[in-house]
Design a protein around this nucleic acid. Sequence first.
DNA 1: CCGATTGTTCAAATCATTTTGAACAAAATT
DNA 2: AATTTTGTTCAAAATGATTTGAACAATCGG
Lengths: 170, 170
Amino acid sequence: MQPASDRSSHELDPLERQVVAVFVDGVRVLGLPRSIGEIYGLLFISRSPLSLDDLVKRLDISKGSASQGLRLLKSLGAVIEANGSNGGTERRTYYEPAVELKRLVGGFIREQIRPHLESGQTKINQLAARVREVEDPESRKFLSERVDRLGHWMRSGGKILPILQKILGQ
Amino acid sequence: MQPASDRSSHELDPLERQVVAVFVDGVRVLGLPRSIGEIYGLLFISRSPLSLDDLVKRLDISKGSASQGLRLLKSLGAVIEANGSNGGTERRTYYEPAVELKRLVGGFIREQIRPHLESGQTKINQLAARVREVEDPESRKFLSERVDRLGHWMRSGGKILPILQKILGQ
DNA sequence: CCGATTGTTCAAATCATTTTGAACAAAATT
DNA sequence: AATTTTGTTCAAAATGATTTGAACAATCGG
């Protein structure tokens, strides 16, 4: 005989499976691996925080995956450690999802978008320097027009981000 | 003896290579394959339209890649066919890049983002229906709060897109 | 101190995506 | 009509990313 809320059952129930599937899809659009979606999805639909071991058992993934997945999600600020409100016994750490869109978007931008924009800006500066050394004035004009445009795109991208965050912050 | 603008040289010059590298990086962030970045990048930095065959030779990619890459780029509205301004001789088609950010962003949103948002919305509706059938009122309350949140995220995503387009359209 | 528990790391295996290239189709040229 | 040119398609190969699992470290309890 099992308790009503069957924490020892390893399998996901259909609703949980469906939620996890939504997140697996979602993270693929963002270019993140499937396991990230599985982990976050299960945390999102679970009423209480889960340990690494819970994730391993219920999602049937390896410890390695769970560990790495949690690390990434923590770095994004998408999961937080739920330090047991118990008296400090229990050394196992439990995780819960951050559920404010603002936080999620902010973390994603900070970790996954900004670094690319920054390295892109560097490369475009190098490009501009090279273009200045092109002999033929006609070519140089064309190339600098294009490279300028590229720089403009980058700057637009940079400007969009805070706006995005502002809007999604409600 | 070769003409000054050496169209028969297969190799990219260093500047072209650098531009292509920037686009290869760029499209990876968007989750598109490398060849897409190579093709668009070379078109972007080329003073005249290029044919499929030019792309194959200069980028040293297969005909198949070039053909599929061009198809995707056309569907995004990122390259357009430059119908020779000649008298209709020349049956080979040449391609040039669309260089207005607005167009590029619009195409990407239409082809790569909207479909996901739409199928996501469908899935969330199914989810909501299932949640209504959960017996335990406590659980049902929790689950419907979470699923509502998910729906809210989706709608936020949908609302952001036109704003993005407006801002990037200058 | 020893064994059990919890979690991390990283090389190897697995899996998914992209690229290739051969076969084919369509249209133009001889 | 046969050949050449241009381009598409798609199964198989190559590539690249993720996942696994064994080895390891750290901490706790007995």
